[in-house]
C-alpha cells in the first residue's frame, strides 16, 4: 500500500491504495470519476485516456505510483462550469458520438492532438493521430469532423485569450 497524492481536475487528492492499482482504477473506484472508461486490456482502445501533466495518456497503463504528484485532468474536468470545452461542444454539434463509451477518451485525445498541432490539422492527420482510439459506433466520420471543427474553435479561443 502507498499513499498517493495528486491534483485531479484542479483539486488536491490523497489516497491510500495498493501499489498494483492502475491510475484508471484510482480515478473510477476511489475518486468516483467514472467518466474515464476501460474498453480493452491491451492499451489499444483509448477509452481510458486522461491528461497527465497536459499529455494524453492511457490511464489503464499507468501505475498510480507513476502518477504520484502529477496533475491529472479527466473528462469531468475540462468544461468551465456550464460552459463546455470547445472539443466537447464540437462532438455534440457534429454528432461525433453515439453510445458515448469511447467518447471521453476520444475527447481527451483530440484536445491533445489539437494542442500538439496548434490547431493546424487536416483530415488525414486527424485520422492518423486518432490511431490509439477505437470507436465501434461512428465509423469515425463525425469524430474526424468534430476534431477539425474544434481545432478551429480552439484556435479562435486561444487568439481571444
Amino acid at each position: 500500500m502507498s499513499t498517493i497524492k495528486m491534483t485531479v481536475n484542479g483539486k488536491s487528492v490523497s489516497a491510500e491504495v495498493e501499489d498494483r492499482t492502475l491510475l484508471v482504477n484510482l480515478l473510477r473506484d476511489t475518486l468516483n470519476l467514472t467518466g474515464t472508461h476501460v474498453g480493452c486490456d491491451t492499451s489499444q482502445c483509448g477509452a481510458c485516456i486522461v491528461h497527465i501533466d497536459g499529455k494524453a495518456v492511457k490511464s489503464c497503463t499507468v501505475l498510480v505510483g507513476q502518477a504520484n504528484g502529477a496533475n491529472i485532468t479527466t473528462i469531468e474536468g475540462i468544461a468551465r462550469g456550464d460552459e463546455l470545452h470547445p472539443m466537447q461542444a464540437a462532438f455534440r454539434d457534429n454528432h461525433g458520438l453515439q453510445c458515448g463509451y469511447c467518447t471521453p477518451g476520444m475527447i481527451m485525445s483530440a484536445i491533445d492532438i489539437v494542442n500538439r498541432h496548434h490547431g493546424d490539422l487536416d483530415e488525414q492527420t486527424v485520422r492518423h493521430e486518432l490511431e490509439g482510439n477505437i470507436c465501434r459506433c461512428t465509423g469515425y466520420h463525425n469524430i474526424v469532423k468534430s476534431v477539425l471543427d474544434a481545432a478551429g474553435r480552439m484556435k479562435v479561443a486561444q487568439a481571444a485569450e
Partner: peptide, 24 residues
C-alpha cells in the same frame, strides 16, 4: 524495471508476470 510500462503493465495485468517489486 519499469520504463514507460506499455509492455510490462499489460503483461502484469494479464497476470503473465508477477514481479515482487517494480522499479520505475
Amino acid at each position: 524495471y519499469l520504463a514507460g510500462g506499455h509492455t510490462l503493465i499489460p503483461v502484469m495485468k494479464q497476470r503473465l508476470a508477477a514481479p515482487s517489486d517494480v522499479i520505475d
